[in-house]
């Protein structure tokens, strides 16, 4: 009985954590509000919302392994229309509590740099 209780407590820890912190609808979460740019994305917005990571990961594998450089579908492509990461990636990722590591290495500033 005790073992089951301990297991349930540990197992539900992420849910509890998210509820009280930044998770969907949790305390401190701000509903994402994308600034819509003019023009079209490489896919329609609905598809992108769900599947952008697949597009990125395929682009990544192809670029790294095969040398296929279709920048529209990579991070650099995102940056051309959405120069501010804080207004783009970070909003939703923060809302759903997902922390991709892309920006540890890849350049995508959360504030757009002024081009000299």
């Amino acid at each position: 009985m005790l073992a089951v209780a301990v297991f349930l407590a540990v197992f539900s820890l992420p849910f509890v954590y998210n509820t009280f912190n930044v998770g969907i609808g949790g305390a401190g979460s701000v509903a994402p509000k994308l600034v819509h740019k003019k023009g079209e994305c490489v896919r329609d917005a609905d598809w992108m919302r769900r599947n952008h990571m697949q597009l990125l990961v395929h682009t990544r594998e192809d670029a790294v392994r095969e040398g296929v450089r279709v920048t529209d579908h990579g991070i650099k492509g995102c940056r051309t229309c959405h120069p501010n990461r804080a207004e783009f990636c970070d909003q939703c990722h923060g809302y759903v509590g997902v922390k991709p590591e892309c920006w540890d290495c890849h350049y995508y500033p959360s504030k757009p740099e002024k081009t000299a």
Partner: peptide, 14 residues
Amino acid sequence: PIVSAMTEANETRA
């Protein structure tokens, strides 16, 4: 759809 996207124009490939 993803694969076909890769074969679009101005592609380079090793």
